[in-house]
């Protein structure tokens, strides 16, 4: 997109997930959705009504959902498990590690309402640890798509891949960040905005505030590169190092704990390459997470246009 483009609101990524699954199931009877009392919150009711033979309900049992999904996948089914990210990622971590990743069956785990989407429901319902937990597990691709386009492409890619995926998104409607001509590739960051002063590397719902920050910085004469680093594993090292070489400062912003997430992953790459670039991780710090709506939590921790602008200017003063 261009910095001056109007941003148009799209659908919730959840709806795109359901629409895409319906599209896929139309041509492929091996597509199976698996839910844990979560078909409503996954917006999968239209899918369930259209393809009742292709949805499996396991009840509120997240360990079971992953074990059962692995069994289904081992018979050749293309399985999409959909359940809140907070529960799906770690209540069943051992099943993900052994039954899916280590046993190498292509289960697609879709963590819905992730990050702090559940807002005031609190820490039990937040998933600020899912990426960290799964980053340490070999043989699972982690994708945090930002908009409808990235979500649709991710689901389509996961459906034909013979490897496990964890796909994570939130609840709310997402702005369109891509234009019609854009391409998408797992493991290849999407450049949302070009720029050379500061780079903001974001994923999922933090890409939009990064774009908003870029607009403000633009008016101050600062050019911002915004990367949607949708694939957290395998990471696009090339784009990260390119940003670290071509820009004067790097901010990584994520809807996740600053421990073990995208920020740390990027920092490692840059440090190991010996690039001395001013760098800041932004996300949810190591503390009892503030209460409030998703927006309020974002604003509190500076995951916002103004918060990101401040950090960018602070880093650039160091240059």
């Amino acid at each position: 997109m261009n910095i001056t483009d109007q941003i148009i609101e799209g659908k919730a990524n959840l709806e795109i997930f359901c629409d895409t699954l319906i599209d896929l199931a139309r041509k492929d009877s091996t597509i199976i959705a698996v839910t844990s009392d979560s078909r409503g919150s996954s917006r999968l009711i239209p899918f369930a009504e259209k393809y009742p033979e292709q949805i499996v309900e396991v009840g509120i049992a997240e360990q079971n959902i992953v074990g059962v999904a692995a069994g289904l996948a081992s018979t050749g089914k293309k399985v999409f498990v959909s359940s809140p990210g907070c529960f799906l990622s770690t209540r069943s971590l051992e099943q993900i590690k052994n039954d899916v990743a280590y046993s190498d069956y292509p289960v697609n785990l879709v963590g819905i309402s992730s990050g702090v989407s559940y807002g005031a429901l609190g820490t039990t319902h937040h998933s600020l640890h899912d990426v960290a937990a799964l980053r340490a597990i070999h043989n699972i691709t982690i994708v945090v798509p930002a908009d409808n386009f990235e979500t649709r492409e991710t689901i389509k890619t996961a459906a034909i891949s013979n490897k496990p995926f964890y796909i994570r998104f939130g609840k709310k409607k997402m702005p369109h960040l891509h234009s019609g001509s854009d391409t998408f590739g797992i493991g290849k960051a999407s450049t949302i905005l070009e720029g050379n002063d500061v780079a903001i590397i974001a994923c999922g719902e933090t890409v939009f505030p990064a774009v908003e920050a870029a607009k403000i910085l633009y008016n101050k004469g600062i050019s911002t590169r915004v990367l949607s680093m949708h694939t957290i594993k395998p990471l696009d090292n090339i784009s990260i190092l390119k940003a670290a070489k071509e820009c004067k400062a790097i901010i990584v912003v994520e809807e996740h704990s600053i421990n073990g997430g995208l920020g740390e992953a990027c920092a490692t790459i840059i440090l190991e390459a010996g690039l001395p670039v001013p760098f800041k991780r932004m996300g949810i710090p190591e503390e009892d997470t503030v209460t409030g709506s998703q927006m309020e939590v974002f604003n509190h921790y500076g995951i916002s246009a103004s918060g990101l602008c401040n950090e960018a200017e602070k880093l650039l003063r160091k240059v």
Binding site: A70, G71, N98
Partner: peptide, 18 residues
């Protein structure tokens, strides 16, 4: 790949369900 106890029945149920 088993060895962590308590996994086989869920996996088997998934295969049986398919």
């Amino acid at each position: 790949n088993t060895g962590a106890l308590g996994h086989g029945l869920a996996i088997s149920s998934g295969i049986a369900l398919a």
